[in-house]
């Protein structure tokens, strides 16, 4: 193509037309902060880990789970707790390893894949937490309902009125609604953050990937 050759000639002729930054100009840039998406993904991921840890420890510190009598000795509950800590450790390890493999000197496709892999790990972590939240809520509900005097009294009243089924359905629906709102807010949050951060990267990755198919 003649035009592209013309452009190439012009491009290579223009070596003197670029600004010349001094040693000090460049040196001062080394002290500035990066605004790369990897840094932001890293910060957001750490916040996500902290957020879920805070929820988990915060609830324990406030004595919430222990208030439910008999829960601390329940096999199912202990299994959920042990499993969730084990998986948490595994996610930390995977996230750290993924982050370490991000290397700007890799080729463009590998670099993009590694960044997307980090994002995928955090996404799996979030899904895992949501599942734990749902399973433990479902598991703990019968305990919570029988635990306090007030709730037992409420159940008795409902039974006396012949509306026990309605009462349970009400509780289940209310819990589902709260869970749906929590999940909805979280999804919106991720969609906003990662949608903005990774949109261009995903687009470029698809463009490169298409070539290979």
């Amino acid at each position: 193509m003649d035009e592209l050759e013309l452009l190439k000639k012009d491009w290579q002729k223009g070596e003197d037309s670029y600004p010349k930054l001094s040693y000090n100009d460049i040196y001062s840039m080394l002290l500035k902060k990066s605004s790369s998406i990897v840094k932001w993904i890293f910060i957001i991921s750490i916040l996500e880990f902290v957020f879920w840890l805070f929820i988990s420890f915060g609830l324990k510190a406030s004595g919430y789970s222990m208030e439910i009598e008999g829960m601390e000795n329940d096999f199912g509950f202990i299994a959920i707790v042990i499993l969730s800590y084990g998986i948490l450790a595994y996610f930390f390890y995977r996230f750290y390893m993924n982050y370490k493999t991000i290397n700007t000197t890799d080729n463009a496709k590998t670099l993009m894949e590694n960044i997307l892999k980090t994002r995928r790990t955090v996404k799996q972590y979030v899904i895992f937490n949501l599942i734990v939240l749902i399973v433990s809520t479902a598991y703990m509900m019968p305990y919570a309902l029988n635990q306090s005097e007030e709730s037992r009294a409420l159940i008795e009243t409902a039974r006396a009125d012949g509306e026990l089924f309605k009462y349970y359905i009400g509780i289940v629906l209310a819990t589902l609604l709260v869970l749906a709102v929590v999940i909805g807010v979280l999804l919106l949050f991720y969609w906003l953050i990662y949608g903005i951060l990774l949109k261009r990267l995903k687009h470029n990755y698809t463009e490169l990937k298409q070539l290979e198919d």
């Binding site: 605004s35 998406i37 890799d106």
Partner: peptide
């Protein structure tokens, strides 16, 4: 050569202010 790679990677992958 090394600069080409890091430079392009930054422009097409890492740079945020698009």
């Amino acid at each position: 050569t090394w600069m080409y790679r890091v430079g392009l990677n930054t422009a097409i992958t890492l740079y945020r202010k698009s």
